[in-house]
Design a binder for these strands. Structure first.
Ligand SMILES: [Mg+2]
Length: 331
DNA sequence: AATTGTTTATACGTAG
DNA sequence: CTACGTATAAACAATT
């Protein structure tokens, strides 16, 4: 038996099939791609793409950052991170063993995440995870899949003499690289349906990242404080109704209040909110560029792990990339 | 025992 | 091409 066997049937399935039985027991209001509440039975017919969630264009690192930053306390337990992600992105309702392992790995491996000892004697396992004070805004460039440089804890291990960086002299042969796309996954015969317009249309033509604050689906204190051991809705609402209305957005332009001293991590996820419950290639309001002479990491083109179920069509905007691409069109 | 956390190894795609 | 950032798997150790 495989190490991890996929959930028999993604809890998701049921949810989408009508029974609003969230994994939290309570009837969590279903959200559409834009975070709008979907009344039971009100779902548009074509909406039922239950198991066709494409992988959100965010690295685990960025997801974790978002989760942590939206938390009032700016710190979350592992499980809370899981929940936040799972809640927001239906895609992560599948293969949990897999991505959760990756999440753990990311937390440990990356210096930008630091472990914060748990409160005095709060019941529960594991400590909190927070962002390293100096990690800053790691995604300001708008590339959520790959940072230009990964934050390294300034601490130079061992002798501070530092001197030359004792780089990982790991040169060594990179070995064979063939295999590769040996067998090109024959797409589900059926030609991938043309990408839904919304998938390509920059929702907000607004140029780069205006750093509007756009609060995340805050788990509101309710969750935070009484984070139910298990079995209760941790994240009451993903979106503030008023926020969904794109009409009135920026409540506060500043991500941090004057009162908030030191370490603030402006994530500038700006329009990201629109991606809540990212359920397929909903319009990624951001930073795709078709700039020909610049190859940028395009998650849709390079998704390693299957982004969708076999047989399901996958919408993959092609020829686009993630990063803002220095388009100084102005010039 | 299960969850949480650390670590090693491999693979992939892009940046330079 | 190599270097780097990331994804994934897996083998543990630590904790509850
Ligand atoms: Mg760490």
């Amino acid at each position: 038996m495989p190490p991890y066997q996929a959930e028999p049937l993604p809890e998701e399935a049921r949810v989408h099939l009508g029974a609003p039985v969230s994994e939290f027991g309570a009837s969590l209001p279903e959200r559409d791609a834009f975070g709008a509440e979907v009344a039971p039975g009100t779902r548009p017919l074509g909406y039922c793409r239950s198991l066709n969630h494409t992988k959100p264009p965010y690295s685990y690192i960025s997801l974790i950052c978002m989760a942590i930053q939206q938390a009032p306390a700016k710190k979350l337990t592992l499980n809370e991170i899981y929940q936040w992600i799972r809640q927001l992105f239906p895609y992560y309702r599948q293969n949990q063993q897999r991505w959760q392992n990756s999440i753990r790995h990311s937390l440990s491996f990356n210096d930008c995440f630091v472990r914060v000892p748990r409160s005095p004697d709060t019941p529960g396992k594991g400590s909190y995870w927070a962002l390293h004070p100096d990690s800053g805004n790691m995604f300001e460039n708008g590339c959520y899949m790959r940072r230009q440089k990964r934050f390294r804890c300034p601490k130079t291990p061992a002798s501070p003499s530092a001197d030359k960086g004792q780089k990982e002299a790991k040169s060594g042969r990179e070995e064979e690289r063939r295999k590769r796309t040996a067998e090109v996954k024959m797409a589900p015969s059926t030609t991938p349906p043309s990408v839904p317009p919304c998938a390509l249309l920059p929702r907000s033509p607004s140029p780069p990242p205006p750093l509007q604050r756009l609060p995340f689906p805050s788990a509101s204190k309710e969750l935070q404080t009484h984070l139910p051991l298990q079995g209760v809705a941790p994240i009451p609402h993903l979106l503030n109704p008023d926020l969904q209305t794109h009409t009135s957005l920026p409540p506060q332009p500043e991500p941090c209040m004057p009162g908030e001293p030191l370490t603030h991590h402006p994530f500038s996820i700006s329009q990201l909110v629109d991606l809540q419950s990212y359920d397929g290639p909903v319009g990624y309001s951001g930073y795709y560029s078709s700039n020909p002479h610049s190859h940028h990491y395009n998650p849709y083109l390079t998704a390693r792990e299957e982004s969708v179920y076999p047989g399901d069509s996958v919408y993959c905007p092609v020829g686009l990339s993630m990063c803002p691409v220095p388009i100084m069109s102005s010039s």
